[in-house]
Design a protein around this nucleic acid. Structure first.
Lengths: 341, 341
DNA sequence: TTGAAAGCGTTACCAA
DNA sequence: TTGGTAACGCTTTCAA
């Protein structure tokens, strides 16, 4: 039907408007000086011809594309997919495009980071995995900003945005104490993320400053992450010393699994124990769970991550920043306002 | 510390290996003839210098990047995030990279598709929204293949991969009948996707061929999609004519919500009714739901989608294909093997 | 088989 | 303020 579509270039627009290619570039990019009237003329011509910048050529010349690389893992996990959604949303809103890569091993991450540099991305957001310092250094050498979310990348010049785990643990502890709990459990999984570990430490510290010593909190480490891990932990839970009445979980999936596991053994929250989990995922709000959770402010996390990238873009050598984003307690059924019966 | 990192170009490799730039290109791309020994020599030199092709320059020259555009919406929805995970996985596996864009309105979709062409993507996968024919045509003119997943894009030269909704509805009907159901409900939401509508039609047809006429199935249309929609539909369900004992839902989220809504009214599956939903999301397997569902073969869907793109890349003008991917019934608690009591 | 050279489409520098 | 021109880094004819 329609012919092979010779794509319209800046030169075509220039011809149409009776100016040079250079002027077209200036008119459309707001860089360099240009007479207001020629500018409108060019813009009109561009619109008329349906001109679209070739991002490949643009990037090649500017040594930077408007792509932002995003490293993720296990996207279908509820919190991670919410975070990814927020990131993509924010990336688009700020005029970039998301180059999303799933990574399940450090080897893959290495290849990925390399591909990001090959596309001359404007920044890299790491939400999973521990990028090898050498790779990040490669980015740094290309002056590509890197930011980590909810993980500590202990590398110079790499920023880092994180939900306030200490505050979260304190809120949870406070709530458990106020509702009358006096024996506790902490549930995490083996090989937990850095964030998970931090939450555990903070929980024990918060209890300690309320005069509950280390032996008042039972540490439970599930063999795997996610709902299945939590469920298995509950099913295997040693009840010989009774069930702790205040349980705090490293994440929402573990918490849901733990709750369902306990139900299978005839226990339920809030009657037999109180339960609080991190990450306010959609599922935790559902009738069958109604978990009291700590809500991570996803849009703030994403927004701050992009702030870091843009800020470091301006001054690449500034000291590494650590941005803490406040969390909030969402009171629901598994740890209600009322006291423990 | 380390200097501003002058990036290594093909020219550097050429110098190092004592050949011309052109030879380097051939050695690394397997295009054009080259002596085996020079090839190994060049590859050695490239590795030694740590050479990485600049994808921007490569794409500019080839008029095609190794990017694949993916259009998604509401990523945090469990089925969609699983699908996205599968797509990204498959895209990477086949040597491409995923340019992911979230789209919530047709306007946005239009802008998105445009940006895809500006990046000269190798293909576009649409999992959400109805791209305007004109836009798709633009892609077609750039010879960019477009494929839709679980939706009918009724546009020439656009392929289309879809779970077999008819088969799914037949499997569900069969199961409901075998377990003794004789009155039915169909739950969908207003403004449902094409796939949802198709499932409803197929369900009614399957019932009809089993001699259950149109008045044996009650159509329930929730005001919104997702868990909340299903829950609200259950809470508002008119029970004056009793509760149908076989309920089929357009998707898993609606089904979970409906189940929880009914529980709030004192009814539960499988005792008071049987329930089957489409999409075997992780949540449906959990103890609190244990939904009998129709499993979509995500990895097959993704694989077929990429097959379509690659095939159309070879012969751009072949007739539009429709690939149907079989689904399977996952029997769980809400519609068990045993008969209705 | 190899190398020289002409693009690919844009931006940025430098004169005019 | 403008236009010419040289990059940007790669691929791909076309001769040799």
């Amino acid at each position: 039907m329609s012919k092979p579509h010779k794509s319209i270039t800046a030169q075509d627009v220039a011809n149409h408007a009776g100016v040079s290619r250079a002027v077209v570039s200036r008119a459309l990019s707001d860089k360099g000086s240009i007479a207001p009237e020629t500018k409108t003329k060019v813009i009109a011509a561009a619109r008329e011809l349906g001109y679209q910048v070739n991002f490949l050529a643009q990037g090649l010349n500017r040594k930077r594309s408007q792509l932002i690389g995003v490293v993720v893992a296990r996207i279908k996990d509820p919190f991670r997919s919410s975070l990814l959604e927020g990131l993509i949303h924010m990336i688009q809103r700020r005029g970039y495009q998301a180059l999303v890569t799933e990574v399940n091993s450090e080897k893959e991450l290495e290849a990925t980071m390399r591909q990001f540099t090959q596309f001359r991305v404007s920044g890299v957001i790491v939400t999973s995995g521990q990028p090898p310092a050498t790779l990040v250094n490669e980015c740094v050498q290309f002056k590509i900003p890197v930011v980590g979310i909810n993980r500590q990348l202990d590398i110079p010049l790499v920023d880092f945005v994180c939900s306030d785990n200490q505050q979260g643990a304190a809120l949870a502890t406070d709530q458990l104490l106020k509702s009358g709990c006096h024996s506790f459990a902490w549930l995490n999984y083996a090989g937990s993320t850095w964030a998970g570990l931090q939450r555990g430490v903070a929980f024990e510290q918060a209890l300690e400053s309320a005069n509950f010593g280390a032996n008042s909190v039972k540490r439970v480490i599930a063999e795997q992450d996610g709902y299945e891990g939590g469920e298995a932990a509950a099913l295997a839970f040693d009840l010989s010393q009774g069930l702790p009445n205040g349980v705090f979980c490293a994440n929402a999936q573990l918490a849901c699994g733990f709750l369902d596991g306990m139900r299978q053994r005839g226990f339920d929250a809030p009657n037999d124990f109180h339960l609080i989990g991190f990450d306010n995922t959609p599922q935790t709000a559902q009738y069958s769970y109604r978990l009291t959770t700590l809500n991570q402010d996803i849009s703030a996390l994403c927004s701050e991550a992009l702030n870091c990238l843009e800020s470091r873009n301006k001054s690449p050598n500034q000291a590494a920043r650590l941005v803490r984003v406040p969390v909030s307690l969402v009171l629901r059924h598994t740890s209600p306002v009322i006291n423990l019966g």
